[in-house]
């Protein structure tokens, strides 16, 4: 088969998967809305906490006014929803109940199945998140006035963040091939992500050591960086460097994914599918 055939086949498979997946998730819209509620509540809670702090400190904390916090956590909520993945919760279940085998017997890589699921989930839920975000911006009197170039830079930063977070979390999900109980690992990752990707507080409010760790590790580049970009907290140079770091991390994550995948499948097919 030629490369063009393969690409065409993949596009066809994606289109079909989108169609079924959107139909499926529409059928589960109740559950979906509940998921979404949980996903949105975290940023809203921190938004409330930090605006309260800002007000009690005479209007601003470390240069963040109450309105800045409102803008930060609202944008964070949107970015978090768009970058979020759930596959590492699902893999353990898949492996244990044998639902992984049918995916392996398809002539395309299982990652495509999950990418398509992920994108259709986001497409559907974004329609719920966008009005909530607008409401929050108004209700908390957020100060969000991005310039044109902030918006332009936000788009690639967000897309790269989506790709990076997906690749990292999918690779972590593969741990289910080795571990019978992955919940402890997932929790450790989730906690690290919570603090180091700026979900508890903007990273600049943390001690320098934590900030350095967040920048050296992939966490900042998966969530916080696009938020900082849209809020205009970064210089043009810092944005360009950030995009470069994102691309480098994506390249590394791809290599890791391929490697771990190959080892994982070898193990899966050695110990019993």
């Amino acid at each position: 088969m030629t490369r063009a055939d393969r690409v065409g086949g993949l596009r066809d498979a994606y289109r079909a998967k989108f169609r079924t997946e959107i139909a499926l998730q529409f059928a589960y819209r109740g559950a979906l809305a509940i998921w979404l509620l949980g996903l949105l509540l975290g940023p809203i809670v921190y938004l409330v906490v930090w605006t309260t702090v800002a007000r009690s400190q005479g209007g601003a904390v470390a240069g963040f006014s109450a309105g800045d916090f409102a803008a930060y956590f609202t944008v964070l909520m949107v970015v978090n929803q768009l970058t979020f993945t759930w596959h590492f919760y699902e893999f353990e279940w898949r492996v244990r109940n044998g639902f992984f085998s049918p995916l392996l017997l398809r002539p395309i890589h299982p990652v495509h199945n999950d990418i398509a699921e992920n994108l259709s989930f986001k497409l559907l839920t974004f329609t719920g998140v966008a009005p909530v975000a607008l409401l929050l911006l108004v209700a908390f009197d957020a100060s969000l006035q991005p310039s044109a170039w902030h918006i332009i830079a936000f788009v690639p930063a967000l897309m790269l963040a989506m790709a990076l977070r997906f690749l990292v979390e999918w690779t972590i999900a593969l741990a289910a091939f080795w571990l019978t109980r992955v919940s402890a690992l997932n929790q450790a990752y989730t906690v690290a992500l919570l603090f180091l990707s700026g979900q508890v507080a903007p990273l600049v409010l943390f001690p320098p050591a934590v900030q350095a760790a967040a920048s050296i590790l992939p966490f900042r580049w998966m969530v916080s960086f696009p938020v900082e970009t849209l809020l205009g907290q970064l210089s043009g140079e810092a944005v360009l460097v950030g995009l470069g770091v994102q691309i480098a991390w994506i390249a590394l994550a791809l290599v890791m994914l391929r490697l771990v995948w190959r080892l994982g499948v070898r193990r899966y097919s050695a110990v019993g599918a």
């Binding site: 086949g9 066809d12 498979a13 289109r15 079909a16 998967k17 169609r19 079924t20 139909a23 499926l24 059928a27 589960y28 398809r106 002539p107 395309i108």
Partner: peptide
């Protein structure tokens, strides 16, 4: 489980080209 069988078939068609 929750979508019409024909839609699952359509997906298989695309996956198996």
């Amino acid at each position: 489980w929750d979508i019409p069988v024909i839609d699952s078939f359509e997906l298989n068609r695309a996956i198996f080209q």
